[in-house]
Amino acid sequence: MLLGLQVGSFESDFKVVSEALFNYNSNDTTHFAIMHLRLPRLLLALVVGASLAFAGYLMQAMVNNGLADPYLLGTASGASLGAVIVFFGFVDMVIAGIYMPPVFALFGAFIVTLAAVALGYRKRQLIPSQLILAGIALSSLTTAILGLLTFLSDSEGKLKSVIFWSMGSFERASWDMLPYPAVAVSMALLFFVFYQKQLNILLLGADRAQALGVKVARTRWVILLTVSLVTGFAVASSGSIGFVGLIIPHVTRELMGSTGRWNLLFCAFIGGFFMLLCDLLSRLIYPPAGLPIGIITSFFGVPFFVYLLVRKSYNFKD
C-alpha cells in the first residue's frame, strides 16, 4: 500500500508520503497527487478486486460450477456496451455535470443481467443451466454489437477508449466515484458473512440443500441480486477486468478449504490485495499510463494458479 503511494510521476519517498498523509499541505502538488490521485486509485483497486473475487465466489456457489465468474450473465459486456455507446457519441459525454460513461456502463450491466435472468427464469424458479446459457448468448450478442460499433468507428481515439474499457483501468479513480463500489461491496460482504452457511450447503446440490432446509430459490435470488449490484458498480468504475473473479475464489478454497467460515472475507481480501499488486506492477512496467490492468491480472495470476493446481490436486468441491 505504501509502495503504491510512492509510485508516480512526482518524486516521492516514504517521508513525503507520510507528510502528505499526516501533514497535508494543499499548496504542495506532490501532496495533492498522493492524496487525490494515488490514494483513491489504490483504494479503487482494492475495492474492485474485492468486489470481483467476492462476486465470483457467490456465482460459483450459486450455479454450483467452478467455471462460473461474475461476468457469466453478460454483466461485463453489458457495461462495456453502455460505456461505448457514450464514447461513440450516441449520448452526450456529460449530462448535468455528470460524466456519462460509468452511468451508462451501470445501466448496460443491469439491463443485460436482467435480460439473462428473465431468460433463465422458468416455472417461478431460477434454473442455473438456463441462466448460464442465456448469459453466454447475451454476452455474445452484446460483444457482437460492440464489435460492430468498433468496426464502424471513424477515429482511432474511440478505439483506444474501447480497449481501455474492455481491459480495465483505475486511472479514472477519484474520491467522488469511490463510495459507490465501496459501499456496495461492504454491505454485501457484511450480509453474506451471516448468510455463508446457506452458501456452503448450496454446494451440495439444490435437492440436498432443499432437504436440509435451505430455501434454494430465495437464496439464488439473493445471490443474483448481490452479484449484479457488486459487479455492476465494479465494472462501471474501472471497466471489465478478467481473471480475478474466476480464479481468486479457487485460490481461497485451496488455501482455506471449501467451506471455511471466513472464506468470503478472505476471498475479498485476497482479491483486493491481488488487484492492488497488479495495478502497482502495471504502473512500474509501463510508466506513466500503466498497462491495461486486465493484461497484468492474467499474466501474473495464471502462473500462480497453475502452481496451485500442480502442487496439490485441487477440486472444486473438495
Binding site: G8, S9, A33, L37
Partner: peptide, 13 residues
Amino acid sequence: YPALTRESILQLD
C-alpha cells in the same frame, strides 16, 4: 501519441 496519467500532466504543468 502516448497516453498520459493525470499525475504526469499535473507534473508537466
